[in-house]
């Protein structure tokens, strides 16, 4: 899973896709996932980090990340070919 390379992620939770001109807003959890993805972390690694830091059970987390990633795909924020 690779984020679109040119994606601009601001700490305030504003995402700008310079290739399309679309901008997005995101909550803290989503921002963390994007930043981790940008650092090259895998889905598994991200899950581990969340389980450590957040009060959340694994099923709910799995389900939430799955849904979030489907939204990233929906918005074309994932590199093609993945």
């Amino acid at each position: 899973m690779k984020l679109k390379q040119k994606l601009a992620i601001s700490d305030s939770g504003f995402i700008f896709d310079p290739t399309t001109g679309e901008s997005f807003s995101i909550n803290q959890e989503g921002l963390t996932i994007l930043q981790l993805l940008k650092e090259g972390k895998t889905e598994e690694e991200i899950k581990k980090i969340f389980l450590n830091e957040y009060d959340v059970d694994e099923t709910v987390l799995d389900r939430s990340i799955l849904d979030f990633i489907s939204m990233l795909k929906n918005y074309n924020l994932i590199e093609n070919g993945e």
Binding site: S25, E29, N52, V56, S64, Y75, L77
Partner: peptide, 11 residues
């Protein structure tokens, strides 16, 4: 641990 909210993104 921090309280967890579903990650969400919107245009």
């Amino acid at each position: 641990k921090k309280k967890f909210e579903r990650p969400v993104i919107k245009k």
